[in-house]
């Protein structure tokens, strides 16, 4: 069966990729590993936004605020109050859930462009609050000195250990989110993306499904925020400013918003482009902008969209070049991935 053979090749690819990622600290230096940690925590944030866009059709510009909120909680309770792991982290997720619920019950009354504007407003309110509150959140200078913890004799201040911890958390979280997209809840969310009016007419609680999806996405942004705070050691208003939100939105589109793994691929590419091009020229934002423009012009479904098109195109396929059945299968059942 050609279809099975293709699946085998796919799984071998994933296994090799996983092994390479796990063994990463053994064959590259600290800088590269730290870059991968950045990909992981921005990947969480991007996944959070991408899940809402791709699965639920909701473009939310509040996600960065949740990313920052969990960082601030870690800063406030971990550094300033000196609470030990896991309390600041659990409090961070709790705070994110509470804030997301409050925002969600308001924002989910709206759709499309109004939703975009209201989430933009929420994000900006959080940013302005963080910037102007000097008594607790320390205003523009932010909270410094956030350090990872030592637990069971494992010191997560060492970048290798922190990388492995982040990687395990990331794999687990991605797997759970992937399962959610395949569950009845995920399908209902897809239905809301396609046609909320019909979803109500066939008896779904559209509003609450959207609120729950918003909570799930917020938790992912929060997890990213925790890792980011530990890794950079600092949390300040610039972490949650609008340009960061837009950058995350770009990574989602770059990778392919309609694909589950699009945001992760987009983040990996964008972070590496930042690293590579900023080493060559100071005007790296210009170069990145042009690359982004080209990709979006030629493939509106992002980088994964390019590969997906190639996969479906008889001429370019590798795994099914000899298989007539597979080709017919793809033509008949056009799937997203």
């Amino acid at each position: 069966m050609s279809f099975m053979r293709n699946n085998t090749i796919k799984s071998i690819f994933y296994v090799i990729a996983t092994i390479l990622l796990v063994l990463l600290p053994f064959y590259v230096g600290q800088y590269t590993v730290t870059t991968f940690i950045r990909i992981i925590y921005f990947g969480f944030l991007s996944l959070s936004m991408g899940f809402l866009i791709g699965q639920g059709g909701m473009v939310s510009l509040t996600q960065t605020a949740f990313f920052g909120l969990s960082g601030y909680i870690i800063g406030l309770f971990g550094v300033e109050r000196g609470l030990i792991f896991p309390w600041p982290d659990l409090m961070a997720i709790g705070a994110v859930l509470i804030l997301a619920f409050l925002f969600g019950i308001i924002a989910m009354r709206t759709h499309k462009i109004v939703f975009l504007m209201i989430t933009l407003a929420f994000g900006q309110v959080c940013w302005a609050f963080a910037a102007q509150n000097t008594t607790i959140l320390r205003g523009w200078s932010g909270i410094r000195g956030i350090r990872p913890f030592v637990i069971y004799g494992i010191n997560f201040n060492e970048y290798q250990n922190f990388y492995w911890a982040s990687l395990v958390l990331f794999f687990l979280s991605v797997f759970i989110l992937w399962r959610i997209t395949k569950s009845p809840f995920g399908l209902a969310l897809n239905g809301i993306r396609e046609n909320p009016k019909r979803m109500a007419a066939i008896g779904y609680p559209v509003y609450w499904i959207r609120v729950v999806a918003f909570l799930i996405a917020a938790v992912y942004a929060g997890l990213g925020g925790i890792l980011a705070a530990y890794n950079t050691g600092i949390i300040m208003p610039t972490t949650i400013q609008l340009s960061r939100t837009i950058w995350v939105l770009l990574t989602v589109i770059l990778g392919g918003a309609s694909y589950f793994f699009g945001p992760i691929v987009g983040t990996a590419i964008a972070v590496w482009l930042d690293v590579l091009i900023s080493g060559v020229t100071e005007r790296y934002n210009l170069v990145i902008g042009v690359i982004f423009l080209l990709i979006v012009l030629f493939s509106p479904t992002g980088v994964i969209g390019i590969f997906d098109t190639l996969r479906k195109d008889k001429k370019f396929t590798i795994t099914n070049i000899f298989s007539f059945k597979k080709r017919r299968y793809i033509q008949k059942h056009k799937r997203r991935w």
Binding site: I180, S183, G191, P205
Partner: peptide, 19 residues
Amino acid sequence: YLSGSGGATKAFKFLGSWK
């Protein structure tokens, strides 16, 4: 499938594929 399982409780199942 969506139309056939539209009850308020059936949407909030997060684990296991709908298939």
